[in-house]
Amino acid sequence: MLEDCETWAVVGLSGNPDRTAYRIARFLQARGKRVVPVHPDAPTVLGEQGYASLADVPFPVDVVDVFRRSEAAGEFADQAVAIGAKGVWFQLGVLDPDAYERTAAAGVPMVMDTCPAIEWPHLAGSVA
């Protein structure tokens, strides 16, 4: 996902630079990824228009990156499948084995309990 996917919808991204979602979105953007804020308030963050839901995003999304508590995260995996995302990423501490099973059964790759900033250095030829 880190190498092949360009457009990342970040669920829970607000304009608060103290939040982890903001820092990771900025990290992804600095590495050439397009970041799409998905938040009920639909804020513009890091220069990108936000949307209240994944269904509101009017263009294809490659990865849905979820910054929500485990008990609320599964619905976003389901929404990611529904919009045709190529992958789902649950951040550190976000676990939902049932959502993983549903997403995998739909043929959509998913990772849980890790962070792009942690995984990026493992890419061949990457510069962290």
Rank of each mutant, 00 (worst) to 15 (best):
L46N: 07
P109S: 08
S70Y: 02
N16P: 13
D4R: 15
R26L: 14
P43M: 02
P37Q: 01
A105P: 12
V63Y: 08
V108W: 04
R102T: 14
V36D: 03
V63A: 08
K86N: 15
L54K: 03
I24R: 00
R34E: 14
G32P: 04
L28Y: 09
V111I: 14
V63R: 01
V11C: 10
L95R: 09
A21I: 07
F90I: 04
I83L: 06
A85F: 05
Q29W: 01
G107R: 09
K33S: 00
A42F: 01
K86M: 10
T20V: 15
H39Q: 06
P58K: 04
L28S: 07
E71K: 09
D113L: 02
P17M: 10
P60E: 10
F59A: 12
E3Y: 06
D41H: 06
D18C: 05
L95T: 13
D98P: 08
W8S: 14
V35G: 08
P109Y: 05
G12Y: 11
F27D: 11
L92G: 07
E3H: 09
V36Y: 01
R68K: 08
A77K: 08
V10A: 06
M110D: 14
Y100C: 11
C5G: 14
A55W: 00
G107I: 03
V57W: 03
A73F: 05
V88H: 03
R31N: 10
F90Q: 05
A82E: 08
G50A: 05
V45N: 04
L46T: 10
A105Y: 06
R26Y: 09
L92P: 05
T44P: 06
C5T: 13
C5Q: 15
V10H: 09
A25I: 11
A73M: 06
D62V: 07
S53W: 06
E6M: 14
V45Q: 09
T7R: 14
V35N: 05
C5P: 11
V88R: 02
E6L: 15
R31A: 06
V111Q: 03
L46Y: 10
Q79A: 15
L13M: 12
D78W: 04
G93E: 10
K86F: 07
P37T: 00
V66K: 01
P43G: 03
R19G: 13
D78Q: 09
A42S: 03
D18E: 15
V57F: 08
A52H: 00
T103S: 12
V66Y: 03
